[in-house]
């Protein structure tokens, strides 16, 4: 599955990378983020685009599974 590693990237990079994955036509992919702002921004993006998002913690990182 497509993985977007957005750890250590500052705003708005995580959202840009996720948007690009959506634009490239992936039906499902994961985004890994390591801060709360990026998590909120990705969730707002998926909500705006009408996509499903499932969140789980992996250590200090947050993994967001994005699906159509």
């Amino acid at each position: 599955m497509k993985k977007v590693d957005a750890r250590g990237l500052s705003c708005p990079q995580p959202v840009i990378l996720a948007s690009r994955a959506i634009a490239e036509g992936y039906d499902s992919f994961t985004v890994i983020v390591d801060n709360e702002v990026a998590r909120e921004n990705i969730l707002r993006l998926t909500k705006n685009k009408g996509l499903k998002a499932e969140i789980r913690k992996e250590g200090n990182d947050t993994v967001i599974l994005v699906e159509k």
Binding site: C11, P12, V15, I16, S19, R44, L45, N48
Partner: peptide, 11 residues
């Protein structure tokens, strides 16, 4: 960021 988000991602 307010203006950027409108232009970049229509947020």
């Amino acid at each position: 960021g307010a203006i950027r988000d409108v232009l970049l991602i229509r947020d």
